[in-house]
């Protein structure tokens, strides 16, 4: 599942608005088995995708992006800029995925009740 999220986020985010990955996580939350699992898997997947893409892009600029942006935000080390990016992505992905999971549970319960 981590791979599925990661791959979808990686392949679709280029064309989506910045919050597109959150929608993906929300949708995939429906396929998750537990709330914690949903959060953790999405977190890890998005954390890795955002972190790795940022890292690679940073290399393209010979490191100047992380250096200058970390300095702009008063972050003590350039690499922390990548970490912050990954954390923000991971966190958002995680909560949206968990939301998706809960919504799925609620829908299931309603279905069971009707049945």
């Amino acid at each position: 599942m981590i791979y599925a999220i990661g791959l979808l986020v990686l392949s679709l985010s280029w064309m989506l608005p910045w919050w597109g990955f959150a929608a993906i996580c929300f949708l995939l939350g429906h396929k998750m088995k537990s709330a914690f699992g949903a959060f953790a898997k999405a977190f890890v997947a998005v954390f890795c995708v955002w972190g790795i893409v940022a890292y690679i892009e940073n290399i393209q600029s010979q490191g100047f992006m992380a250096i200058k942006m970390s300095s702009m935000f008063s972050i003590p080390h350039p690499m922390l800029m990548i970490l912050l990016t990954a954390l923000v992505g991971g966190l958002l992905g995680g909560v949206w995925c968990a939301s998706g999971f809960y919504l799925h549970q609620l829908l299931l319960m309603r279905k069971q009740k009707r049945a």
Binding site: W18, E57, T85, G89
Partner: peptide, 9 residues
């Protein structure tokens, strides 16, 4: 911050 839309691009 998004590496798909933000300054990383």
């Amino acid at each position: 911050l998004s590496p798909f839309t933000g300054f990383w691009r």
